[in-house]
Design a protein around this nucleic acid. Structure first.
Lengths: 190, 190
DNA sequence: TGCAAATAACTGACTGGTCATTTATTAATA
DNA sequence: TATTAATAAATGACCAGTCAGTTATTTGCA
């Protein structure tokens, strides 16, 4: 399935060839059909497999953080890892690029991963607000501002990875983001 | 070309059919080939046509703003427009989705549109810093934080447009973003 | 103006190649 | 041997790109 993700990532769903995916794992095309009934099926299995773990990591961080500023710091640490070391950028690109061919997959990805992730962050924000740590009017909106640099970096990684141009220091970017969010939300020692 | 953009947006480059693109403008496939020598050619023409105007608008706003906080307010006004009313979300999706099939197009889009746009923002930030309006250590990084919510919203619009789920109040999102950035950067009346 | 050449714009059937998927054969293993 | 795993060889749908021929528009000229 990692082979399929790479192939879809590099060519897009329509242009990716089943034979090439099979070749990547030293199998023949026919064998691939013993495990996945169709190209569509493979695509769906792929998204299902890689989607859920991402969410769990975020929910972990959000639920373990004793204070919102801690959660921001935690994000600043794991975001660069996630962007440079995991399959997530590829997954995002594939999902986005072929979203219109798989409306049901996109719908479920949104409701089961994205919306839940945003809800986890919004929940933490609301809690921090009632604890008096920060001051937030609309947690749902702020949650989007929190994840925005992550989405930007994921997309950047997926699309501009191979292009020439100034590289970005992701660690500093997310440290800065955490710092700015704290200041904006009125965390004391920011 | 708008027809082609729609078709590529809805199906992806590989799956889009030249005949369908032609049909959208009530022409036959053959006629389309009188104007564009190939599917590739059409794609490239498309990106070229729609890419440049986007940049110009951003550079306008950045160069006309007398202070950084004004620029943020201006962004808060035009960003929702740009996201819901222009071709930009579609363009982003198409470009991202098929980026690996057109590395040269992506490279030039990056260097001629994205990097220049970021540089314009970074320049404004640096100026505001030396004017004493704000305090910025690394304008290039902060520029990314400034555009992050725009990228998030563009992608969201392009990918989740048709899905069911809570809608976002873009106007408020960007007002909030402007407010938070001002606070984070130390603008006085924020 | 009226009419014919000339040119421009357009059409849709056709070709060649490319895969997704299926079917027939062969190896491996218990 | 029987069952499972794997392969290799069809099959057929699909579509980019071509081109011989048609239709619409413009130009030249009486």
């Amino acid at each position: 399935m990692a082979a399929a993700l790479d192939e879809f990532y590099e060519r897009g769903f329509a242009a990716a060839r089943m034979e090439d995916i099979a070749q990547r794992v030293k199998l023949s095309k026919g064998t691939l059909y013993l495990y996945f009934s169709s190209k569509d099926d493979l695509f769906r299995a792929l998204i299902d497999t890689y989607a859920v773990p991402n969410l769990e990591q975020i929910e972990q961080i959000m639920s373990n953080a004793p204070a919102f500023s801690m959660a921001l710091d935690a994000i600043a640490v794991f975001a660069p890892e996630m962007i440079t070391k995991t399959h997530l950028p590829k997954l995002l690109k594939v999902l986005a690029g072929d979203s219109h061919n798989f409306p049901d997959v996109v719908q479920s990805y949104r409701s089961e991963v994205i919306d839940r992730g945003l809800a986890a962050i919004a929940g933490l924000l609301a809690r921090a607000d009632s604890d008096g740590e920060i001051q937030v009017d609309d947690p749902a909106l702020v949650a989007r501002l929190v994840i925005a640099p992550m989405v930007l970096s994921l997309l950047w990684q997926a699309v501009f990875d191979r292009t020439k141009g100034p590289a970005v220091d992701l660690a500093r970017l997310f440290q800065l983001h955490a710092q700015y969010m704290k200041r904006a939300l009125g965390v004391e020692d920011a």
